[in-house]
Each structure stands twice: as structure tokens, then as C-alpha cells.
Design a protein around this nucleic acid. Structure first.
Lengths: 229, 229
DNA sequence: ACCAGTAACTGATAAATATCATATTTTTAA
DNA sequence: TTAAAAATATGATATTTATCAGTTACTGGT
């Protein structure tokens, strides 16, 4: 069953809410829905994008691979986020790969619909601009964090980030379960280092784990650690 | 002597070129020109900005201070760049400080002129959006670089970046002269480490120096170093 | 021209982090 | 279900990078 953008809740979270009825109708008519399995790419670095992807469900990592095979996760995107917008706006190929870290449902919206609205509806353009401004601020903050905080501090911060942005499940574990490797790629460290720090945090009673699931036990101490106490 | 935006060359490099005659006139009438001495701030992190600053001359570093007193330079902005745009667009206080690394001449444009045009002229908004998209790509690339390259590689990259973006003087030195401390803050390392690597590069014949000026001697080798050979 | 004060530099050492090796656990697929 | 593969975990060690301490070289102001 294909649903209409007009009735889609995730639209409330992104720039599509600034579209007019007619524009939205056009988007809805031209969009296609895709299912992406965990581990599969939505698009990859260097690829030319013919549109943007609106996330309905699941979580995607936006990352870039380096020569030595490690990749750095720049952002985690979930429900409501629009992927590929930067590439479409600047008419460049994708700078990052988008890979599902959970099974996903996304809507593909051809770039024509987007470009058309960008040129005609200043409210929409401004809304996209605001989102991009927010992403830029976050990216700047990541730069400062990586270069000024220790791996331990960044690990603590990552757990708090996951708690804030993706919440916890009924058993008190972080709702978004990442592999140890993905965690290390968010933090920007070696996988073994990330694992070691997880063990250390566990011993200190800051977190608890069950398999790959991680739960926060002492939020306060983690916060203090981020601040450098 | 106050010149008019309509005749200003630096406008060609930024989003103001998408403004209409009338909009430009309004900007020109409301703008004020400021001189900033080397080392002085244009604005500082946390400050509420009442407008944007268009760089006519000189170079500014955009950086963020950490608790321990080190600051990370996120971007270097020169002729034609518009500073504070992100803050004005998202109606937040400045995320970064802008400090002159050379004597500067900037035009202050009140945010009313900008906001007004943003709401009415989709071409202008789109142009601002494209610039922000470009900045975001660059920021993402910095994240990946910092986390995946060694300090030595990032130092090599920084010199090539300075060469590409600011050129060289008549004697073959980089036209933009930064203090060793600023270099270390661009690269994200300790000042002593930066100095040590400069010495090493000098011994290896990759660069030459004279006082704080640095010249590139072997671009090819620097490039190979960045790539990890 | 001189004399603070700052910036550049160098060495010794400590700390943080990555890498390599290997064991153990968990997941996957036949 | 069970063997193989992949992910997690831990120890030993190497490497990178930061920190501390001290020296030398510039620079701006009187």
C-alpha cells in the first residue's frame, strides 16, 4: 500500500512541510518507496543522485571510506531526515555513503520535484537552508570534538548522543544498537580501542551491556567525563 | 570613502550576486564598513549577531575554543566570503569566533536586509543554500581527514591547502602567513608537534622557511604524503 | 637601540592510542 | 544442529602524539 506524502507524519520533521498543496501532490505522484535491508547502501560516495531519500523508518549511517579501509561516520539519520539533499542542491555527486544500520523504509523523490520547488517557493528553500545550517553547525561541533577531546570523552559523548537521539528500549538499553565497529567509526578510533573503553566503562558502572546492546547506568558520570572532570 | 555594493567586485564571489538591483541598493544603504586589526575579533562564539560580515580584504579564522584553552580552526575565510550567515539564517548565536589573522576590511550588513531578501528572492536563498552546501561538504571532509590521517599527513595537506587557496608571494612563500600556533590549530595538534613536523619537512626538502614564512619546495612529495605513500 | 614579552624551537619523557596476536563468544548459513 | 564465519574481547607491544622544561630567536614599543 502506497501512502500519500500529504498524510505522512515524517514530513513534519523536515523541509517538505514548507511545500504547498500542489507541490506536495507532485512529489507524492513522482515518489517511489523502497525497502533497504540492514547493511545495504541507499547510495554510495561518488554516485550521481537523481533525487533525495526521505527516511520513513530505520536508521542510516552517513560515512566516508578512506584509503586504508576505515570509514568515518559523519552522521546518523533517522525518521524524517532527508538524505542526498546536499548533493542535489549543489549538483555534485554524493560526498558520503548512506548505509542502513537497521532495516529501512525510504521514499525516493526525483530531483526535478525538488529543484522545481527550490526555484519557486522561497519558504521551502529557506526551510532547506535552515536544515543545512543546522547540519553545518553539528559538523563544526564534531570537528572541534574530535580534535579537542580524548577517545574516552568522545565515547561517553557518543552514548549520551545515542540516548538523546534514539532513546531507550523497555529494558533500559539504547534503542539504536550499533556494532562495536560502527561505534568506533562514529567516535573516530580503532575498534579495539572502542571495545576496551566499553569494558572500562562497564567496570566503572557507567554502562551495562548484553550482547551488543548497551545501556546507560550513570548518565551524570558520563556527562562529567565529557566535560573533562 | 564608502563604495557601493553595486560596484563591489567581491560580490561576484558570494551569494549577493543573486540580489536584484533594488535589494542590492537597500543593502548598500544599510551597510557599514569596518576595519579590523590583526588579532581582533569580528565576532565571538556565543554572541548574538545582528547581521553578516562580507570580507573585502584580509583573512579571518573561524574557530571554537575548548575548556582547556586550545582552539580549533574550522575554516579560513578571505575576500568575498560572508561570515555569520549560518547564525543569521538559523537565528542562533554564533557557533564560532571570527578573528582576523591579517588586517581586514569588512562590510557589516544588517540581518533585516538579508532576511527580507531570503523570504522574497528564491534565487538569493538558493545561492546562499549552495554556499552552505559547499561549506557542509568541506566540513564533512575535515571530519574524515582529522580522524583518518596522521598529524604529518594533515600538516602536508594544510600547506597544500594554503597554497591552493591563498597562493604564493613573489619569493615563493605562502601568501598567507600563519603563526605556528594557528597552523597547529588548523591541523588539530599541539603547537610543539606542528613545529617539529615543520622542522622535519624542512630537513626532507619538502618546504623552506624564513622566519614564520613557509614556502613549498616539493609539492609532489607533499601530495604523496597526504595520500599515504 | 634596547629590553621585555612573545613566539619559535628542541630534547626528554609521559600519555594516549593503534596495531598485532590470539582467545572467546555470537551469529549465520548449510 | 552444527560447522564456519564474523564479531567481540583482551593482552602485549609499538607508534604516535602531547606535555613539560628549557633555550634561542624574533618583535613591538619606548
Amino acid at each position: 500500500m502506497e501512502s500519500r506524502c500529504e498524510n505522512c507524519i515524517v514530513r513534519q520533521f523536515n523541509s517538505l512541510r514548507a511545500m504547498s498543496k500542489e507541490e506536495l501532490k507532485q512529489v507524492s505522484d513522482s515518489k517511489t518507496t523502497k525497502t533497504i535491508k540492514k547493511g545495504q547502501p541507499i547510495f554510495e560516495e561518488g554516485e550521481k543522485l537523481n533525487g533525495v531519500y526521505c527516511v520513513r523508518n530505520g536508521v542510516s549511517k552517513l560515512s566516508k571510506l578512506s584509503a586504508n579501509g576505515k570509514d568515518q561516520i559523519v552522521k546518523l539519520a533517522s525518521k524524517g531526515e532527508v538524505l542526498g539533499q546536499r548533493s542535489v542542491v549543489s549538483e555534485e555527486s554524493a560526498n558520503l555513503s548512506a548505509i542502513a544500520v537497521e532495516d529501512m523504509e525510504v521514499c525516493f523523490i526525483p530531483k526535478e520535484s525538488i529543484n522545481n520547488t527550490l526555484q519557486k517557493n522561497p519558504n521551502f528553500t529557506l526551510e532547506v537552508l535552515r536544515h543545512m545550517a543546522h547540519d553545518l553547525k553539528e559538523a563544526d561541533d564534531v570537528i572541534v570534538n574530535i580534535s579537542q577531546k580524548t577517545v574516552k570523552q568522545r565515547m561517553a559523548e557518543a552514548f549520551l548522543y545515542l540516548q538523546n537521539n534514539f532513546g531507550e528500549d523497555a529494558d533500559g538499553f539504547l534503542a539504536l544498537t550499533l556494532s562495536r565497529e560502527d561505534i568506533s567509526n562514529v567516535v573516530g578510533t580503532a575498534t579495539e580501542s572502542a571495545i576496551r573503553i566499553i569494558s572500562e566503562f562497564k567496570k566503572k558502572g557507567l554502562i551495562h551491556t548484553s550482547g551488543k546492546k548497551i545501556g546507560i547506568k550513570n548518565q551524570q558520570k558520563l556527562l562529567e567525563m565529557v566535560e573533562g572532570f
